[in-house]
């Protein structure tokens, strides 16, 4: 469009921001909304296939191992993973709040805890994937029977690895973002800027990862 726009024009700063939030935070929200549709499409296609299939493997049969404790413990390991993610979400909120109060020491401490939680979650997932792969489960290969004892298709493992993999990739990105935030905090970048609003955006992303896990955990492991 041939519009005469002065090079120096600042679109957002021209007046007050319409929603009284900064530009970056609003855009993070809209990015997360689009990401929600991506995950939603994945999960709904999983649900569609499950509704279109006569029988499906029982999650309590598939996910029943705990490292060091052996088999026959359904839901235990995934509960641990769920709580790790909830706790890391809590420490992230605390980091954001410490940022509001310009409390650098507390920001650093809570960011470190959040990063540790993220890495712990990824380690758990790595173990679970390795364990399932060992049992013969992978994309295109499903050793588990349906709950009624009939032969299952590979849909189950395909969806499981694709969706938990996509979520795990988000956790990984979140950990990388948090590490960058930690480095910036330690370098006093936010102190010089006068605000810690960047941590808030990273926090939104991290909570979104936790939010997606709420759905993945429920539809793959519980129902």
């Amino acid at each position: 469009m041939a519009q005469a726009v002065p090079a120096e024009q600042k679109w957002w700063s021209g007046g007050k921001s319409p929603f009284n939030v900064e530009y970056g935070k609003l855009m993070m929200w809209y990015f997360l909304m689009s990401d929600a549709f991506t995950f939603g499409a994945f999960l709904i296609s999983y649900g569609t296939i499950r509704f279109a299939t006569n029988s499906w493997p029982d999650p309590n049969e598939v996910f029943q191992s705990f490292p060091g404790l052996g088999n026959g413990l359904p839901l235990m390991f995934v509960s641990l993973m769920t709580f790790i993610l909830i706790i890391s979400s809590v420490t992230m909120v605390l980091a954001v709040q410490a940022g509001h109060a310009m409390d650098k020491k507390s920001v650093v401490r809570n960011l470190v805890l959040t990063i540790i939680g993220g890495i712990a979650f990824l380690s758990c997932q790595a173990w679970e994937w390795a364990h399932l792969h060992h049992e013969g489960a992978w994309w295109g290969s499903n050793p588990f029977l349906n709950i009624d004892g009939t032969k299952a298709t590979t849909n189950f493992t395909n969806f499981f690895f694709t969706i938990t993999g996509f979520h795990g990739f988000h956790v990984f990105s979140g950990v990388v973002i948090n590490i960058i935030m930690l480095i910036m905090t330690l370098n006093n970048v936010f102190e010089r800027k006068g605000h810690y609003l960047m941590i808030e955006k990273a926090g939104l992303y991290w909570h979104f990862v936790d939010l997606v896990w709420v759905f993945v955990f429920t539809v793959f492991y519980l129902v």
């Binding site: 600042k10 957002w12 700063s13 007050k16 921001s17 009284n20 939030v21 900064e22 530009y23 609003l197």
Partner: peptide
Amino acid sequence: HQDDNTEITF
């Protein structure tokens, strides 16, 4: 393009 400091948010 823009700097956070110039923004007015309450």
